[in-house]
Amino acid sequence: MSQLQVSTTVNGDPVEFLCEPDESLMDVLRDRLGLTGTKEGCGSGDCGACSVTVDGRLVCSCLVLGAEAQGREIGTIEGMAKGEQLHTLQKKFLEHAALQCGICTPGILVAAEALLKENPDPTETEVRYWLAGNLCRCTGYDKIIRAVMDAATEMRGA
């Protein structure tokens, strides 16, 4: 199977890669670009652990082909902190102990950032429904919801 050449932008960096026509963006990020912060939990779009943004839109990268990244801007967990400066959401997840094993955390942070861009002042119910596509098996979601709400409050005040 001949490979496709793709030019894209990942976390602001221009990136070129070769991929197979049926290879997912998740596999490209993890296996070809070394960006293993994007996690594979199911490969079928049911768990949200591979959440990234494509041109600002939240997607499961396991459901997007690598070839579809051509000319787009991809955002992953690795691009969330600016140098040593953690994003408010990252700080709040640490402060609230909103992670246990941490495998779902990158996907949830990426999804939560997308939420707060669209809705800076979400209700608890809105946060719960927005994150309903991101499975967490450890926390029961309580501390995650608190961390997102607290981050939203702080970001609105900033």
């Binding site: 960006l35 293993t36 996690k39 902190a81 640490l94 102990a97 992670l99 941490g102 942070l109």
Partner: peptide, 23 residues
Amino acid sequence: TRPVRPDGLDKVTGRARYGADMS
């Protein structure tokens, strides 16, 4: 007390390496 966990930063930035992250 409730300090921040020592592995926390790695886990909120995607640096932590899980089973499938090794090559």
